[in-house]
């Protein structure tokens, strides 16, 4: 009996080529027009380059491109894991309360001044720190609550409840805060891919690499979970252990990304859907790397789109991801159901 195995290598190679082209395009776009030839010179470390251009590329654009790629990989993978684990297509990387926690932390830091007096300002580390503390706090509460709960769907609902709870607190805070504080908070919530220094990038790369090692342990459990929790148990999967690994990886990835670039909406939810529509498989050995690559591509495209600028200002990344992402997902879903004739 011959079972034809679907071949995924051509798609992967095509996607990698697209990724490289878009990454180069992403470095090329920006408020200052740098000729391609100069970019090539800088990448190849050729001596006759303009110092200004070199500074823009290595200290601004290259970190931003790499940030986009890392954010896309991290959020895409987290979203896929959450959707498989909760067996819910609406789950995303933020269902565990990471985004609401980060928002609460930052809101308290920026707008809480009127309540607690001014808080110490640690230059550009303070906001990531506030976001991390906030996510860690809310995540811990969700995890402790989840520990005694057998039904995974309840965890999902608990996460959503914490989201509502924190956004209510943020509303109260914003009601009492000054216009400047409010603006500062809203700017953070738009997300920004361009704030990262190289040292922070190395940290983010390290975290993603560690998470990647963790992923190797859960490829099979994730596949088994496709049949539901009871079948997975009967295949020798420990649900609790799998849950812990998945939650730890998601917290690491999403938490660190949110701390550095803000709560990037939509990507974590949409990328797994786009990937499944392209690859037409549920096999996580294929889906996990595919989600990473497609996530990176989409983030790069979104970041490039922020530069089709109105005057000298760039558009907020968080708006772009949804404005351009949502129609694409809808279109893909509609065209898929047309193809199946249902």
């Amino acid at each position: 009996m011959y079972i034809p195995q679907k071949k995924y290598y051509p798609v992967f190679i095509a996607l990698l080529v697209v990724l490289i082209i878009i990454a180069v395009f992403n470095i090329y776009t920006g408020s200052v027009n740098i000729p391609i030839k100069e970019i090539w010179n800088i990448i190849t470390n050729s001596p006759n380059t303009s110092e200004n251009y070199q500074y823009i590329i290595t200290e601004y654009r290259l970190p931003k491109t790499i940030t986009s790629i890392l954010v896309g990989i991290g959020l895409g993978i987290s979203g896929l894991m959450m959707q498989t684990f909760f067996r819910n297509p609406l789950a995303g990387p933020f269902v565990l309360g990471i985004s609401s926690g980060a928002s609460l932390g930052v809101a308290l830091f920026i707008m809480g001044g009127s309540f607690f007096g001014s808080l110490p300002y640690l230059y550009n580390f303070s906001i990531p720190l506030a976001a991390s503390l906030g996510s860690f706090l809310v995540l811990s509460i969700v995890m402790i609550t989840a520990r005694n709960i057998r039904n995974t769907m309840s965890i999902l609902i608990i996460g959503l409840m914490f989201g509502s709870f924190t956004s209510a607190i943020i509303s109260v805070l914003s009601y009492f805060s000054s216009a400047t504080e409010l603006q500062q908070y809203i700017f953070w919530s738009f997300g920004s891919l361009s704030n990262l220094q190289w040292s922070e990038l190395y940290l983010l790369i390290g975290i993603i690499a560690i998470s990647g090692v963790g992923l190797l342990f859960i490829i099979k459990p994730l596949d088994a979970l496709l049949l539901g929790e009871n079948y997975a148990t009967s295949l020798g999967i420990s649900i609790k252990k799998t849950q812990s690994i998945i939650f730890i990886i998601t917290s690491l990835l999403t938490g660190s990304i949110t701390a550095f670039v803000g709560p990037i909406a939509f990507i974590g939810l949409a990328i797994p859907h786009i990937t499944k529509l392209i690859f037409q498989t549920s096999n996580h050995k294929i889906l996990l790397p595919a989600v990473g690559i497609i996530g990176a591509i989409v983030m790069l495209i979104c970041d490039s789109l922020t530069h089709i600028s109105v005057g000298s200002k760039t558009l907020p990344i968080n708006a772009i991801t949804s404005i351009f992402g949502a129609p694409i997902v809808i279109w893909l879903l509609v065209s898929k159901s047309k193809k199946l004739g249902s």
Binding site: R87, L227, G228, N283
Partner: peptide
């Protein structure tokens, strides 16, 4: 490796 099961529960949406 000792016990396999066939259950009544429906299987979540997937493309297996």
């Amino acid at each position: 490796k000792f016990i396999a099961v066939v259950l009544t529960e429906s299987i979540p949406e997937n493309s297996l």
